[in-house]
Simulated assay, not measured.
Amino acid sequence: MQRTSYKRIILKLSGEALAGQQGYGIDSEMITSIANQVKEVYDMNVEVAIVVGGGNIWRGIAGSKKGMDRATADYMGMLATVMNALALQDALEAIDVPTRVMASIAMQQVAEPYIRRRAIRHLEKGRVVIFAAGTGNPFFSTDTTAALRAAEIEAEVILMAKNKVDGVYTADPFKDATAEKFDTLTYLEVLNKNLGVMDSTASSLCMDNNIPLIVFSITENGNIKRVVQGEKIGTLVKA
């Protein structure tokens, strides 16, 4: 059996990661690639929970900036995450990875309600768990969901998968050619330098609960496995 650095992980997928190069909606090739990478670590007996965003379909904050009620816009964003979770579940089960979608908003026809003890039991039984619908509350991001669920299920690390960058930089590397990549950071540095890795609520929650975060690129096949095996890729953020 291959050695791993972690037994239980939270994989944070942005909606943009599922959109791939097309920038909107769900890219079938990209979601298949992500599913295959998850299977690699699942086959190593790592317990995998996934928090998925919805920005490839709808962003609540963008809707609110156009005059929509913020709470309504955020609830629409939560529904977008459920669509992504179901698509990811389908891709995983197509390659024989047992998966459960647990939603923070009641929709029993398509997903189980989120219950902490049940989620942990699914992981212990060897199922991948996908957390959908954010925290179930407006005004909270899916980054905060990842931090909250990681604390609840006692995950050892949050793996934040990006599809455009391979870590955390001093500035946007697409706009600033002098931007430099960080190998390690503390959550205080993230907050003080306003680096935008996670929102401040998520960063504070991770810092208070001593949950490390690794930011890396999802576009290179095998990267999730490399991180789980302890290879130093991306940027490590710790308390």
Score class of each variant (00 low, 15 high):
104 S>P: 02
75 Y>I: 15
206 C>M: 14
87 A>Y: 01
114 Y>A: 05
168 V>L: 10
4 T>L: 11
34 I>C: 03
208 D>S: 06
15 G>S: 03
147 A>F: 07
74 D>F: 10
129 V>K: 02
41 V>Q: 01
139 F>N: 13
81 T>A: 11
188 L>T: 15
80 A>Q: 02
216 F>Y: 13
149 R>A: 05
227 V>F: 03
71 A>E: 11
173 P>A: 15
136 G>V: 15
92 L>R: 02
72 T>V: 13
114 Y>I: 04
187 Y>I: 14
25 G>Y: 00
172 D>E: 14
63 G>P: 07
114 Y>N: 10
125 K>L: 15
98 P>S: 15
76 M>I: 15
39 K>P: 02
47 E>D: 06
211 I>Y: 06
95 I>V: 14
119 A>R: 03
116 R>W: 13
41 V>L: 06
68 M>G: 09
203 S>F: 07
224 I>T: 12
2 Q>G: 01
211 I>H: 08
186 T>Y: 13
56 N>E: 08
174 F>Y: 14
20 G>Y: 00
171 A>F: 10
59 R>S: 13
138 P>M: 12
159 L>K: 00
172 D>T: 11
180 E>K: 13
200 S>A: 14
137 N>L: 14
15 G>M: 01
112 E>V: 01
192 N>Y: 07
105 I>Y: 05
191 L>S: 13
204 S>V: 12
142 T>P: 04
90 D>I: 00
6 Y>M: 12
25 G>C: 03
172 D>M: 02
108 Q>K: 11
230 G>Y: 11
187 Y>T: 11
22 Q>A: 06
181 K>G: 11
227 V>P: 02
235 T>Y: 07
129 V>N: 02
26 I>S: 02
130 I>M: 07
95 I>E: 04
60 G>A: 09
129 V>M: 09
42 Y>C: 01
80 A>W: 04
144 T>K: 01
138 P>N: 10
72 T>D: 14
115 I>D: 13
191 L>H: 10
233 I>M: 04
96 D>N: 09
33 S>Q: 03
164 K>C: 13
124 E>K: 07
193 K>G: 07
159 L>H: 04
116 R>V: 14
239 A>T: 10
37 Q>K: 00
239 A>E: 12
96 D>F: 04
47 E>M: 13
217 S>G: 07
161 A>Q: 01
78 M>D: 06
178 T>H: 12
17 A>C: 03
20 G>M: 03
235 T>H: 09
230 G>W: 13
229 Q>T: 09
157 V>C: 10
18 L>T: 00
5 S>N: 11
193 K>S: 08
150 A>W: 06
134 G>W: 10
14 S>H: 02
235 T>R: 11
212 P>Y: 14
190 V>H: 07
195 L>C: 09
5 S>R: 12
36 N>F: 01
105 I>H: 06
54 G>E: 01
103 A>V: 04
116 R>P: 09
233 I>E: 03
79 L>N: 05
106 A>T: 15
23 G>K: 06
190 V>E: 01
146 A>N: 08
80 A>Y: 03
104 S>V: 08
163 N>D: 09
235 T>F: 08
129 V>P: 02
21 Q>S: 02
236 L>G: 01
205 L>V: 15
55 G>D: 02
30 M>K: 00
157 V>T: 06
169 Y>H: 08
151 A>C: 06
219 T>R: 04
57 I>H: 00
214 I>G: 05
43 D>P: 04
166 D>V: 03
48 V>N: 00
157 V>P: 05
168 V>Y: 10
228 V>M: 07
147 A>D: 04
110 V>A: 14
